[in-house]
Design a protein around this nucleic acid. Structure first.
Lengths: 198, 198
DNA sequence: CTTGCTCCGAACAATCTGTTCAGTTCTAAA
DNA sequence: TTTAGAACTGAACAGATTGTTCGGAGCAAG
């Protein structure tokens, strides 16, 4: 109701309030997990009036997705994928995640709730699907199992991201990328080749 | 507090109450999604007194895990995996899921909350890890990337299960199994072979 | 100084949770 | 069939949480 939800709010107070709430959510997620965080927790930690909160956000989830925007660049650094190399987004993604590990741990880990992961999965599925279609001969009908293949690849990648965010995997971005590619690429390329040569 | 949580309760009333609540939860999950289901909903649908509910279950989640036991056989039909064929559990799992699709949809789909999927992932990871270790030369030190490979394979499998449970994939159990195997097996075997020949 | 935002904080109804208890109904075994 | 006891009922309760409302206060630009 109050502030402009776009990039730059004209009023400094609005920016201050928004930032305080966003940061409070990240802190609280890391402490108690997303589900256990209440709006009351948020406004106490952010030191913001209750009515102020509801003037800016509709929900707890609204704050979450607001934070997600700060990671959205992360998910959109995928556009110029070279058609000759599948899953080109993999390494940059893991590197970006490593730089933003605090935020990534809060939003992508188990404690972060499933909403963010669900949205990320959606975006990734679209990207991967586009990559695979581009790797097929133009105009050829895509194989009916395309969605299954996409689901496998995205599922593997998301699982790596989540476990890494939870600190269950001690690996460098390069190692994460190498493992993902080593497991998934051969099978996917075999499927593509089989479909081409038919 | 009241009944015996083991298989056969001596008192018919206990069995009736438990079954009613379990079934009510499945229905309500399919209608509103797990998160939106309240204990009040449960006791209304099951036609059970409030105090009775809390005499049998501590939580909403307690009911969920009770239902999970009915699917646990499903997750444990994996023990006698042939060492020469990786991911032998895949096809039987998809078949079992297909028979129990109502329950599977409620518990494994997006509407079912993440608790069940998390537990299933844990179990599956142990199984897959065991399979891969068995496929390596005895006594050889497992590769440091083993956990990464396991995570990829399990992640792909879980993603297939979840999307199928949500009705987003129209495929037979055989097709699901074929796709999973086609995507994941080549890469996994290549990793194993590379580690053996070193 | 005045106008127009934004924020505060208290109060509010509504919902949900988990517990308690006195009283009723049913079960299983004698 | 009888009976002791286990299980269920229903209502009431305190405590938490949510989302809304409203009068008043702070602050910045014109």
């Amino acid at each position: 109701m109050y502030g402009n939800p776009s990039r730059e709010s004209p009023d400094r107070r609005v920016r201050r309030t928004r930032r305080a709430v966003h940061q409070a959510l990240v802190e609280l997620i890391l402490e108690k997990g997303y589900d256990a965080v209440t709006v009351t927790d948020l406004i106490n930690r952010a030191d913001v009036g209750r009515s102020t909160f509801y003037a800016h956000f509709t929900d707890k989830q609204d704050v979450l997705f607001g934070n997600l925007d700060e990671l959205s660049d992360l998910l959109h650094l995928v556009p110029a994928a070279k058609p000759d190399k599948l899953f080109a987004f993999s390494l940059p993604m893991f590197e970006h995640l490593h730089e933003q590990r605090r935020l990534a741990r809060a939003l992508l880990g188990r404690r972060g709730g499933s909403a963010v992961m669900a949205r990320a999965e959606q975006i990734m599925a679209d990207v991967v699907r586009g990559e695979l279609l581009a790797a097929l001969p133009q105009g050829s009908r895509p194989p009916p199992s395309l969605d299954l293949v996409v689901t496998c690849a995205v599922g593997a990648f998301m699982a790596l991201m989540r476990k890494w965010a939870d600190g269950e995997l001690a690996a460098t971005p390069a190692e994460m990328d190498a493992a993902f590619r080593a497991v998934v690429t051969p099978g996917v390329e075999a499927v593509l080749a089989a479909h081409r040569g038919r």
